[in-house]
Design a protein around this nucleic acid. Structure first.
Length: 425
RNA sequence: GCGUCGGUGGCGGAGUGGUCAAUCGCAACAGGCUGUAAACCUGUCGGACAUAGUCCUACGGAGGUUCGAAUCCUCCCCGACGCA
């Protein structure tokens, strides 16, 4: 431990001399015999106790949840999206408002994703069943297109990649736009989040190895260009930290290679990206982790569901973000310690029990399943609000409990207990 | 009382001689959702047989015309409107 701290301080000094990182990360405790850790991440807008969950607020709002409620639920950081804010209202508005946090009324730390994921979701995954996670048994060619033909480009997608960057067709009005790594950095400087990500290419798991390598190498070149663009803005360097993103699909050799390269480039932190099939996540993750230095904070992009979160924490991930909590809630499903539950189902119409008995979630204590079921059925937005709050609160509680378990030296027990109850409730 | 227009599956509402167990919307029932093109999407939705498919019962009621009727004719019941 003493050696670790010494190593850390040397690293910190080195980084300080070189770039004056806007953030500082300190590991407090590690899981016994495992890779997991609890730490403190200091940012210009406050500290984040890790492992931590960043509720996703794509368009500078966490759907259905006021910042004050978010704070009460225990959130310490939120993540917004470059692509969406660039299109609407435009990054200048956000900058003029005083930055993302001020604009949205959130006092704590913020993050922005680079728009890289949209290269995927509006590109390779466009109109297909592929998403952040892909099921092996649903081949993409059987997918149903749900997009507006008039908006789609002749490629059948809204984003087309070349080595220099990506051309986008706006999903809002069909207008043509272009992102490059430099442009993404420039926009994210305007958005002003404490932590932001390098522009990357997220690939579909259905792509062959050769393409996974090609995309990974492109992501690396983009990473280097992103860093260069960032460092040219001295003002931003002191206020914002830049995370590079590890890609490489499901291939462990690519994941290792990518992790080494992203680390070599000298980012303030590392994001693990990608679209997975359930089976591939663990292998890809552990391969990448094996190449990462302890002292860099690690963000597991787009994860996740409770079991995946615990898997990530056990593997040594520090930060997570995911739309599932809000989306599931908005669509009528809630997390409980016994698993996911569809509140719109008939059996909850007269279920006057708590949303998840025994789990106290700030602001939702007085609502019953029957009440929220009624609100959801009748299309009242309060139903979506309560369910979203509940889910975000549930996930934040999971993180808080997991963190405490790490500090208490009983993380694996906690994880096993949670999973047992959650999947066999 | 006379006249006109109507009565279709839980609701709204298409269909106006065969390709109709009947387009579509809503509701209902279930499923999906992991760096948000998502307050969204998908499936089922008369009954029976596990499915394909087959059979049964159905378009206010009863008759009739026809090879064949939700669709045409007659009478009856009900509704809206108009005239007395």
């Amino acid at each position: 431990m003493i050696q670790d701290n010494l190593y850390l301080s040397i690293q910190t000094r080195y980084v300080t001399l070189a770039y004056m990182s806007a953030i500082n990360f300190k590991i407090e405790k590690r899981t016994a015999g495992g890779a997991g850790r609890a730490g403190i991440l200091s940012t210009p807008h406050g500290t984040i106790r890790t492992p931590a969950f960043a509720p996703v607020g794509t368009k500078a709002n966490v759907k259905g949840i006021l910042p004050s409620a978010l704070e009460a639920l225990g959130a310490e950081v939120v993540l917004a999206n470059t692509y969406h804010l660039y299109l609407q209202p435009g990054e200048k508005i956000v900058k003029d408002a005083g930055g993302l946090g001020k604009f949205m009324g959130w006092k704590g730390p913020t993050m922005t994703d680079s728009g890289g994921f949209q290269v995927f979701s509006l590109g390779a995954a466009f109109g297909k069943t592929i998403s952040k996670f892909t099921k092996e048994d649903s081949p993409p060619e059987e997918s149903v297109a749900v997009y507006d033909e008039g908006v789609a480009s002749q490629h059948g997608q809204l984003a087309v990649i070349d080595d220099e960057g990506v051309s986008f067709t706006s999903h809002l009005d069909g207008s043509l736009h272009r992102f490059t790594p430099e442009r993404s950095v420039e926009i994210q400087h305007s958005l002003g989040a404490d932590i932001f990500f390098a522009f990357d290419e997220c690939t579909s798991p259905t792509e062959p190895y050769a393409y996974q390598r090609e995309a990974m190498e492109r992501t690396h070149r983009w990473a280097e260009r992103s860093l260069k663009a960032h460092r040219q803005n001295i003002d931003a360097v002191g206020k914002q930290a830049l995370f590079g993103i590890v890609q490489g699909g499901r291939h462990e050799d690519l994941r290792k290679e990518s992790a080494r390269e992203i680390v070599r480039l000298g980012f303030d932190g590392v994001g693990i990206g990608g679209s997975f099939s359930k089976e591939d996540m663990r292998g890809a993750l552990s391969a990448a982790m094996s190449e990462l230095p302890e002292e860099l904070p690690r963000h597991f992009l787009g994860i996740g569901e409770p079991s995946d979160i615990l898997e990530g924490i056990a593997s040594g991930m520090d930060l997570f973000d995911c739309v599932a909590a809000t989306r599931l809630g908005r669509h009528g499903s809630i997390y409980t310690k016994h698993g996911l539950l569809h509140l719109k189902n008939e059996k909850y119409r007269n279920d006057f029990s708590a949303l998840d008995s025994g789990t106290v979630i700030s602001g939702t204590e007085s609502f019953t399943r029957a009440y929220v079921s009624h609100l959801l059925r009748s299309g009242e937005m309060l139903g979506a609000v309560i369910a979203s709050m509940h889910n975000v609160g549930f996930i934040l509680r999971l993180f808080a409990d997991a963190r405490q378990a790490i500090l208490d030296g009983r993380f694996e027990d906690y994880r096993a207990d949670f999973i047992r109850t959650y999947t066999h409730g």
